[in-house]
Design a protein around this nucleic acid. Structure first.
Lengths: 121, 121, 121, 121
DNA sequence: GTGGTCTAGACCACC
DNA sequence: GTGGTCTAGACCACA
């Protein structure tokens, strides 16, 4: 299954989201080394500058740290990762409900839609 | 309540989604006239060309039709609106589940998260 | 058979072309009265101002003349109509050849295309 | 030879047609890079946004694809180009015959006009 | 007044 | 440098 990018959102944000998800899923654990810029660039099939931008942003948010000459590592600060988890989860839920409500769905109808989606899959 | 725009997605798409939602909610009914470009531009606080782009796209997708010199109108073709509804709903659900699963949630945990979100609000 | 308008060319020009063609086909003869603005507007399903514009342009080009309070009439000057005919015919042929050649067709291939079009219809 | 624009049709459509013709003539081959928006804007002596519009439409119709940061490229899908060719050719022929017939020409007279046009040139 | 096209110039994401 | 989005302001065709 090929992963493609959404034309309508900056690629670096989409990659960042996916890396964050990987971290939160435990694929990368606190203190783990993230792939090198070049490797990641090949993996995601983007220019290495784009990965640079991603790592830069991860660092800015305290999710990753760099050790000069060694690479980029997932933070060992559990609090940051916890916050990240909560914030991503909250954003996801909020956006989902906001948009479903904008479509005119009541809370009950949303629950119903969720259930029928789960069955259908 | 002030509505602001998401930095990470083109404004014209966000406005388009909101207008589509308005139509699907029944705020604009089939055959209704949509606000003029100038009015809409003032309402959304964007340049009139941005609204132009939105209407142009609505027309291209068959959601709206234009009568020269009169205005832009919601299509009377119920099928198109039905498709639109289904497609928006499906996309919303798919994206939500995809991202929750990427965060490591099982289907049961997603249901749980939804329920607790509903209670908390 | 419903006649619709080409979105990409001013309506008044399209109507003008059709009226000129009617004249050249002999549907309206030199000296004949053209339909009143209101009638023509209903017939072509456009605003009467659009017809005004058409007649104004026909007059400017000497194809029609107005008699105050009586209406608009096809010119009795055969020379003007002759010129009109030649010019429309020449423009049509030139444009057709120009565009076929732009598509890469040689003169022989154009003749071939014409013949196969006639047989196919 | 200076190429000018027809007042009565949007410039972006005229440019689009010319680019399509160039592609179909083989001046740009499948996979070839089209000129950058700035270059094309200078070449056609229009604003770069007008070229944007053109490329956007080419992309929407599947005639071109865009690689972010690299440029716009002719599709490698031969089917699309084939359809384009057929559709442009058909439209040209249809319009030509329609208008000649509107002028009162029979099919034989049209063929005659074509022949005399070819000799005269 | 309404939509449609065009220009000029700016900023951003990506390579 | 390349495409994509946005703004500001202008002019036109149509009702």
């Amino acid at each position: 299954m090929e992963h493609t990018f959404d034309e309508n959102q900056p690629i670096y944000l989409q990659i960042m989201q996916r890396i964050c998800a990987s971290i939160l899923r435990g694929e990368y654990r606190p203190g783990d080394k993230l792939p090198g810029v070049i490797d990641a660039a090949m993996h995601f099939k983007v220019n290495h500058n784009t990965i640079q931008r991603v790592y830069q942003e991860l660092i800015r948010q305290g999710i990753a740290v760099t050790k000069r000459g060694e690479g980029t590592f997932v933070t060992t600060d559990a609090g940051v990762l916890d916050d990240l988890h909560r914030s991503m989860r909250a954003t996801l839920l909020e956006n989902f409900f906001l948009q479903m409500r904008q479509l005119g769905y009541s809370d009950d109808e949303i629950l119903e839609a969720i259930r029928s989606y789960l069955q259908q899959t």
